[in-house]
């Protein structure tokens, strides 16, 4: 187990990209620390460092940290999406193995570790639970940055943290609709039938919730 201090130290020690001399300086985000819980952003940066450790050193201790935090949440997501406990367990292990194998694809300027693991879990859900082929968009022509800009990475982790906090503070009825839409346990029409709310109301509540999230992110 990493202690709190060693986590912090590791996050501080995030390797400064060798191209950080402005040669290909990307536009920097403003520091928005005033609105953000810095401790939680530090936690997110610690996950980034752990993914890097897996990528660069096949670091099993770092992987164990990620596993301990994310595997139970991936399993929960898969069960809420309709997987039996056994299937969810099997898929969770496959999702975490994919994290190891695709660590070189992770780009902290494009996604938080939580977002990235969610997309891996979502993909596995389509493969195994829905048994469909999975069309994926073309990669951008410039591909992942060899050395992502650290300020951009921190900015994105902060924004994702803000999003998570905004989601947690949505009114209950809105948050539940968003959750159910993501778990895919029910279609909008099924939710309408179950709650007795007209379909239009369901859709406008989801829209309202998303608008609220956007507003918080501004």
């Amino acid at each position: 187990m990493l202690t709190e201090t060693s986590t912090l130290r590791k996050a501080d020690a995030l390797p400064v990209p060798s191209t950080y001399d402005g040669v290909k300086a990307l536009p920097k985000r403003d520091a928005r620390t005033s609105k953000v819980n810095t401790e939680l952003t530090t936690k997110r940066m610690a996950w980034v460092v752990q993914v890097y450790a897996v990528r660069d050193n096949q670091d099993r201790a770092a992987f164990a940290e990620l596993f301990g935090y994310f595997a139970p949440r991936v399993k929960s997501f898969l069960m809420k999406s309709g997987a039996s406990p056994d299937l969810a367990e099997e898929c969770t292990q496959e999702v975490m193995a994919t994290l190891w194998n695709k660590a070189h694809m992770f780009d902290p300027t494009k996604a938080s570790v939580s977002t990235w693991i969610f997309t891996i879990a979502r993909n596995r859900k389509i493969d195994i639970l829905r048994k469909q082929r999975r069309p994926e968009p073309e990669d951008l022509p410039w591909g992942p940055e060899a050395e992502p800009d650290q300020a951009d990475a921190i900015g994105l982790q902060q924004e994702t943290e803000q999003l998570g906090q905004a989601l947690a503070t949505l009114p209950d009825e809105q948050r539940k609709l968003i959750e159910r839409a993501y778990f895919g346990e029910l279609t909008h029409s099924q939710i309408a039938a179950e709650t007795g709310l007209p379909l239009g109301t369901i859709k406008s509540r989801i829209r309202l919730a998303l608008d609220r999230l956007r507003h918080v992110m501004k």
Partner: peptide, 28 residues
Amino acid sequence: EAVGGEVMMDTAPVDVAEDALAATLALI
């Protein structure tokens, strides 16, 4: 997708099998 990630983070964690980490490393 970021919203999806945060929805996943917000769910109540479900215990994985005791040997899950070892099984995953073996899978890798």
